[in-house]
């Protein structure tokens, strides 16, 4: 018994020359102008129950996630793509075609939104904390203690301010170069974990602005730790319920 794994939806021909999950051949399911890139997966491994078990096993998950991403990336090389969430498994090809029909308008809109664009991931990290300020070594133990506490508080505040400044500067610099953006970090949570980025964001960038965008990131990275990943298929921007 097998089911159907869907990788992505596009309005171009789906590539058939890349292996899918478990090396199964990728095929196309069409409805109107839409094409879903799909492959068969065995139900004893990918049915609801076994899948839920397998997803909690990293050794199982990694090759599956990489295969999914490889197919999505290959489709994206041909044209606009709406990537599906990992492990989107359906009963059969006819069911997938019916789903394409049902959501045709939303899918077409989403494809239009990402046409000619790629996604870029940006993470900015807070500058290292400055060395502790000189603290008076004179005066009573009580006064020294209070001065020490004050200095620590000031240092913490300074780190927090420079982190917020950096996040704002990165966002202000990059957002005008992007078609759309998503902030993924929880600004309130920082610095719950000081090694966490102060900004985690995705930017949807038109192909003709790619050089300007990557140059701008390089400019930011000259003075601060700003990491760039990409180009990605538009995983963060292909939502169906957005305008």
């Amino acid at each position: 018994m097998s089911a159907v794994w869907v990788y992505a939806v596009t309005d171009r021909d789906a590539p058939l020359d890349v292996p899918g999950v478990r090396d199964e051949p990728v095929r196309a399911v069409r409805h109107g102008t839409l094409t879903a890139a799909v492959s068969s997966v065995p139900l004893d491994e990918f049915g609801r129950e076994p899948l839920h078990r397998n997803l909690s096993d990293l050794a199982w998950l990694e090759p599956v996630a990489r295969a999914h991403h490889a197919v999505v990336t290959r489709v994206a090389e041909r044209g606009p793509v709406v990537p599906l969430r990992l492990a989107s498994v359906y009963r059969d090809d006819a069911g997938v075609a019916a789903l394409l029909a049902e959501r045709a308008d939303d899918l077409t809109t989403a494809l239009g939104r990402v046409t000619g664009c790629t996604e870029w991931g940006v993470k900015a990290y807070a500058p290292p904390a400055p060395p502790p300020a000189e603290v008076a070594t004179e005066g009573s133990p009580g006064a020294r203690y209070l001065a020490q506490r004050r200095a620590e508080r000031t240092a913490r505040e300074r780190v927090r301010h420079s982190a917020v400044d950096l996040a704002d500067r990165v966002d202000r610099t990059l957002r005008p170069l992007a078609t759309a953006y998503r902030r993924h970090d929880d600004r309130q949570a920082w610095p719950a974990e000081s090694a966490a980025p102060v900004l985690t964001a995705s930017y949807l960038v038109a192909d003709d602005r790619r050089a300007a965008f990557t140059d701008a990131v390089a400019g930011l990275a000259a003075t601060d730790r700003v990491d760039l990943t990409g180009p990605w298929p538009p995983y963060s921007f292909a939502g169906l319920d957005e305008t």
Binding site: L51, R85, L86
Partner: peptide, 20 residues
């Protein structure tokens, strides 16, 4: 994993068996 699991489109219907 952040991208394939937390983002990506969720397309559900009668024929959906599972989605991570």
């Amino acid at each position: 994993l952040d991208r394939v699991l937390a983002r990506g489109v969720v397309l559900t219907g009668d024929v959906t068996l599972s989605i991570a």
